[in-house]
């Protein structure tokens, strides 16, 4: 229901007043809850007979006045996270393209094994894949994180591109073939560029997931943003700063992810206004993929 007012009669002045009052009361309650949490955190606390300062006391935040700390966070933490995400994105998109071509091949003994491999990759936790690569191939933490993220996201991007290829109007391929192109030529020069553009919002949304998942490196021992801040800086400056370091880490992660999600949303609006196709929801990559796959399957099953 994009317009829920159909469900009930248009609210009169009384109903509008009631909903305004409810809105103000609820707003005050929410703000009070947040204020209470902050107040509780700010209180000094007793611990084994000593009184520790509250969590917003300057003595818990003074390390952030030191530019060297920020330098360390940015150059060791943020950069390590971005490097893993960037390398993994490049590999994931490349793998995705290869997977989508293999998966939509006309030859059954290429298509079917690829389908099985893709299902396997999609059904496994990324963390288990990281452990697998770390222990079996003995690659070191960075490449374990990058390889696992590339394989997992490559499988999803491949599936999205395949759905994009299948959902193209049949006439595109027929036109390519009738101009004398080989099947592969038509696929690469005519169909694939269109599918890629249509699926771009899903791909970018998937890259947001990839960026979030680099933090799994914390568990397999890759020194990314979370590990740099909590383990390296946390143990260097002592327990006192644990909470403030966590807050800083959280804010940095949120900034990076929100910027990338907004970019995905903007991209999806732009592409949807240019192509007549149905707008894919860029908010949630896995849901958009589900819809894209179903649309493709529906088109395939209609047959010639």
């Amino acid at each position: 229901m994009s317009n829920s007012s159909v469900l009930f009669d248009a609210p009169g002045p009384k109903a509008r007043r009631i909903s305004l009052i409810a809105s103000i009361i609820a707003g005050i309650l929410i703000l009070a809850g947040v204020a209470w949490m902050i107040w509780t955190l700010a209180q000094p606390r007793e611990s084994g007979g000593i009184t520790l300062p509250g969590f917003f006391d300057p003595s818990r935040w003074d390390i952030f006045a030191d530019p060297e700390v920020w330098q360390f966070i940015v150059f060791e933490g943020v950069l390590a996270t971005l490097r893993a995400a960037l390398v993994a994105s490049v590999f994931a998109i490349a793998l995705g393209i290869v997977f989508s071509l293999l998966r939509s091949s006309q030859v059954a003994w290429i298509r079917i094994p690829t389908t099985i491999v893709l299902e396997f990759l999609r059904g496994m936790p990324v963390l288990l894949m990281m452990l697998f690569i770390l222990l079996v191939l003995n690659t070191g933490a960075f490449w374990a994180v990058v390889a696992a993220l590339s394989l997992y996201n490559g499988a999803l991007i491949g599936e999205a591109l395949r759905a994009g290829l299948a959902a193209l109007p049949r006439g595109q391929r027929e036109a390519g073939l009738s101009l004398g192109m080989r099947p592969l030529q038509s696929k690469m020069l005519v169909e694939f560029p269109q599918a890629f553009r249509q699926m771009l919002p899903i791909i970018v949304a998937q890259l947001v997931v990839l960026l979030k998942d680099t933090s799994l490196g914390y568990i397999v021992g890759y020194t990314e943003l979370l590990r740099t801040n909590m383990n390296v800086l946390g143990s260097f400056y002592g327990n006192r700063y644990l909470f403030s370091l966590f807050v800083v880490t959280l804010v940095l992660y949120l900034t990076m992810n929100l910027l990338l999600s907004w970019f995905a949303r903007w991209l999806s609006k732009r592409t949807s206004s240019q192509s007549a196709g149905k707008r894919l929801d860029p908010e949630d990559a896995s849901q958009a993929l589900l819809v894209a796959e179903a649309t493709a399957a529906a088109r395939e099953s209609k047959g010639p």
């Binding site: 799994l216 880490t249 908010e283």
Partner: peptide, 13 residues
């Protein structure tokens, strides 16, 4: 906010 926070951070918290 929650959707853009990595799960690792949520569980770490």
């Amino acid at each position: 906010l929650v959707r853009n926070t990595p799960l690792t951070l949520v569980l770490f918290f």
